[in-house]
Amino acid sequence: MLLALVSIGLLIGFWYLATAYRWDFYIRFTHIPGPVEVYRDALALFGDPKFMTNITISLRRIMLGFIVATVLGVGFGLLIGRYRAARGLLFPAMEILRPIPAIAWVPMSIMLWPTTETSIVFITFLGAFFPILLNTMHGVATMDSVLVRAARCLGANEFALMTQVVLRGAMPHIFTGLSVGMGVAWVSLIAAEMISGQYGVGYFTWEAYSLIEYSHIVIGMLVIGVLGLLCSGAIRLLARLAMPWQVSVGKENTR
């Protein structure tokens, strides 16, 4: 805890000194705002409803894109992981699309979707979709097959098997996918907002650069960082609620 404070203190101290003395040795701190200036402007900004709108809009885009990615990623992941026919039919097509970074979809997305808003949500979705899909598939594949056999001879039909055994068994991997997917979704969202956006924290940060409001760039970056942190924290909390057996196992081991 103490070391953490020292670590953060050093970072802010370096930032302060570099900006106060206008360090210009290959890296140029000449136009970079210092921590005091940023703090002052941040206070003003947090009372500004327009700035808050930017935050809520970014969060809404993340939620929409991420929820759709979770539903489709987990759904397809379970199908592809469990049924050979689904794998044969769906997976090759997805493998072609997978290496294309979500950001590369921006121009295409703008043409595909009726509004800028939906195209940005689509980019966010793409970022989250593939990590969730692949981890779900992996979770199904690495699940102990004796559990499926046990469920079948206890009378589970295919639907019960999917929802009560395969899904539950793959859950630790699914949550890994959700964590990774959330990270990639933020990367994709910010890039999409910077390129094509109206509103959103990414747009705000880029706009600050154009408007020469340099302290707002730093504020935008910090806000993006904090929002990302909160979102991955939410996933971890959700994981703990959805998988209580893993928590109890951990407790037992540390005793």
């Binding site: 004796v146 046990a150 539950r168």
Partner: peptide, 13 residues
Amino acid sequence: RGVVFQQYSLFPW
């Protein structure tokens, strides 16, 4: 037909 397996097969969740 009840089956008991050699490996532990309880649902961990």
